[in-house]
Simulated assay, not measured.
Amino acid sequence: MAPLRIGFAGANAQRGWAKDAHLGAISAVPDLIVQAVSARTQEIADGAKAVFGAASAYDDSLALARDTQVDIVAVTVKVPEHRAIVLAAIAAGKHVYCEWPLGRDLAEAQEMADAARAAGVHVCIGLQGGNSWAVRHAAQLVQGGAVGRPLSLRVVSPTGGWGAESPPNYAYLQDKSNGATLSTIAGGHTLCAIEAVIGAFTQVTARASILRDTMTLMGTGETVKRTCADHLLTFGKHDSGCISSLEVVGGVTDVPFQFELRGSKGSLSITGGHPGGYQAGTLTVTTNPPSPRQPEQVATGIGTQSVNVAELWARFASDIRSGKRTVPDFDRAVRLTRLLDAIDASSENGSTVSLGGQ
Rank of each mutant, 00 (worst) to 15 (best):
R83M: 12
I85R: 03
V86N: 06
L87Y: 05
L87D: 08
A88G: 06
A88F: 01
A89Y: 01
A89Q: 07
I90K: 06
G93H: 07
K94R: 12
K94I: 09
V96R: 00
Y97I: 15
C98T: 08
C98M: 01
E99F: 10
P101T: 12
L102Q: 04
L102G: 01
G103V: 09
R104T: 06
R104S: 04
D105E: 06
D105C: 01
A107Y: 10
A107E: 11
A107H: 06
A107F: 04
A107C: 03
E108R: 07
Q110I: 06
Q110A: 10
M112E: 10
A113G: 01
A113E: 00
D114L: 15
D114T: 14
D114Y: 11
A115S: 11
A115E: 02
R117S: 05
R117V: 12
A118K: 15
A118R: 13
G120F: 08
V121T: 07
H122M: 07
C124N: 12
C124D: 05
C124L: 12
G126E: 02
L127E: 04
G130H: 02
W133E: 15
W133S: 14
A134Y: 01
H137N: 13
H137R: 06
Q140C: 14
Q140P: 13
L141F: 15
L141A: 08
V142M: 03
V142D: 10
V142L: 03
V142F: 00
Q143I: 06
G144Y: 05
G144M: 11
G145I: 01
G145Y: 14
V147N: 03
V147P: 01
G148H: 02
G148S: 07
R149G: 12
P150G: 03
L151F: 07
L151S: 08
L153K: 05
R154H: 14
V155G: 04
P158Q: 12
T159Y: 06
T159W: 08
G160V: 05
G160Q: 12
W162M: 02
W162Y: 08
G163E: 04
E165T: 14
S166R: 12
P167L: 05
P167H: 05
P167C: 10
P167N: 00
N169R: 15
N169F: 13
Y170K: 07
